[in-house]
Design a protein around this nucleic acid. Structure first.
Lengths: 231, 231
DNA sequence: ATTTTGAAAATGTGATCACAAAAATAATTA
DNA sequence: TAATTATTTTTGTGATCACATTTTCAAAAT
């Protein structure tokens, strides 16, 4: 209960307590700082962030609807355990979702946004160079998010984020045992295709980015990692 | 606030109040019996189902995470308005998601499940014959759900259901103005491909089923419907 | 007639409490 | 000593209350 690996977060003015709890838990799960199988208690979290059960419960309900948490029959709440099968299911879904999101974003992209993508990618490269995995991960997400949200009526982003959330706990495990995550990406290729408004090219770059990134884990490597982490 | 078009639902024994509230609201939204733009009040719903604000709020949080509801800046909660652009975004996402789900289900399909699909499709045809749109809609969903959940480690179903939920309110509008919904489907084609374990064939059938079903609305028809419904 | 102001009602939010179920711990028995 | 039972503690759940904000509606002013 005590140590939730919940780092306090910046809390804007009008933000409600349940929103804040949601953000904080979400962030912790996204970067893999809560171990799969670890069960969360409402009162524990409430105490940790100096609030009460009511708003924490709302945050947990949202997170379980987002696939980040699982409610057991005993009504206990935990971070879902990862399996090799589930992992491959998540990665293939991620590829399909994000290719589609990328394709639908291309008609709406502006030069200004492409410049922003360049900046994010550059910052990510710097984070990778200084072996700052956490920041690199966040910047990688920001790159993808910035691309997909070019589409104003976009409806897919919550689903993409849900997949990220579900992969998060595994990333936490992987980062403990693997030296460097995301040492290559296909972002430059995506940017080049974007400048040409080449939707197929962008989709191909995104697909490659995913399958050579997180999708690059061999099945046996995943099973080893999970065994090492005592899953 | 009184009339919420919330029909009481069967409530199993161990089901919690927030779960029940969630199910009931979800059902109402899914079949389009809550008008887009209509705003929901926590106390109103709580009173309508004879409970209190706390569990209702949890249900509403979940539904907003599922994309079924939108929380405004005023913290008011409403069923999102539909636009022609959003509709087309949802339909194209639905096609992509379900093709993928179908493809990944094929390796796990059993003859027994295919038989079940036959039965569901037959029941749906009967519902269509007697012009029972509501039942036909539910059976159509059950057909698709039964197919995709053949995959045991499937992770996509909540996202498919989220798209259904977001399309629900439009279906409600459409059913008021269009004589018959879903008068043709490609289920038999999907079943034939399933018997042959032909993943591409199944995916093609699902794609056709969607684009000739709900995807068959012309843009101008959608705009007309939305205007008629005062959106 | 339209706008502005003010009071009253409605609403979202979060803390607290009581209750039941579950889990953990202590006591007892085989 | 190991297993079982009893007791205590922890936990999830839902109702209620108080507070602040928003909305609604009536009265007053322009």
């Amino acid at each position: 209960m005590g140590n939730l690996a919940l780092e306090p977060l910046d809390r804007p003015d009008g933000m409600t307590t349940h929103e804040y709890a949601h953000r904080r838990l979400r962030q912790a799960i996204m970067v893999g700082s809560i171990r799969p199988g670890e069960s969360l208690t409402i009162r524990g979290i409430a105490e940790a962030m100096e609030s009460s059960p009511t708003p924490v419960r709302e945050a947990l309900r949202r997170l379980s609807s987002e696939g980040a948490l699982r409610v057991l029959d005993n009504r206990r709440i935990m971070v879902p355990r990862m399996t090799a099968d589930r992992f491959s299911e998540l990665v293939s879904l991620r590829a399909v979702l994000e290719q589609h999101a990328a394709r639908r974003a291309v008609p709406h992209i502006t030069e200004r946004r492409i410049d922003r993508l360049e900046e994010i990618d550059k910052a990510q490269d710097e984070a990778i160079a200084r072996k700052d995995n956490g920041t690199a991960l966040l910047l990688n997400q920001e790159f993808h998010r910035t691309l997909y949200t070019a589409n104003p009526e976009q409806v897919i982003m919550p689903m993409v984020e849900s997949v990220w959330l579900q992969l998060g706990p595994f990333l936490g495990i992987a980062m403990e045992h693997v030296a460097q995550l995301y040492f290559v990406d296909r972002h430059q290729e995506a940017i080049a295709a974007l400048r040409k408004r080449d939707a197929d090219g962008v989709a191909a770059a995104i697909k490659a980015d995913i399958s050579e990134g997180i999708g690059g884990f061999e099945r046996s490597a995943i099973e080893n990692l999970l065994r090492l982490a005592g899953q």
